[in-house]
């Protein structure tokens, strides 16, 4: 079996929570996170701008057998559908990988980490921002 290497970055062209961040800035955030966590950062893949498309995320999931994991710019880049997210978590863990989110400094490396991530995403749906 080929040796695994690195964490694939995942950035996007769609706004998050109503705010837009230039792609090169997203990469700076991911690179800094990887450096501080001592992770080998691999060139980021860019999710499509089309609403509802997660085709690039699927490509990274297909690549997981060759990786140590992935680093999302933000946890809020995950699909809005909970069932789909849980499929992603299961697939990452099943492949022996981990999932990081750089802005929120989240690491998902075991099943016990899933609920904390889901709590953040759920609260974000309901909490108001002043």
């Amino acid at each position: 079996m080929a040796e695994r290497a690195g964490h694939r970055g995942y950035i996007g062209a769609r706004p998050l929570n109503g705010s837009r961040t230039p792609q090169h800035v997203q990469n700076i955030v991911i690179r800094d996170y990887a450096r501080r966590k001592n992770l080998q950062f691999l060139l980021s893949a860019v999710e499509h701008i089309m609403p509802g498309s997660y085709m690039v995320l699927e490509d990274i999931l297909d690549e997981l057998p060759r990786l140590n994991g992935m680093i999302l710019y933000s946890i809020f880049m995950l699909p809005p559908d909970e069932a789909r997210r849980r499929e992603i978590y299961d697939r990452v863990l099943r492949e022996g990988c981990d999932l990081h989110a750089a802005v929120e400094e989240i690491t998902l490396s075991s099943p016990k980490d899933i609920q904390a991530v889901e709590d953040i995403l759920l609260v974000n749906q309901y909490a108001t921002i002043l």
Partner: peptide, 10 residues
């Protein structure tokens, strides 16, 4: 580089 169109990436 996977099949893509640059407009899909912004």
């Amino acid at each position: 580089l996977a099949t893509h169109s640059d407009v899909w990436s912004g």
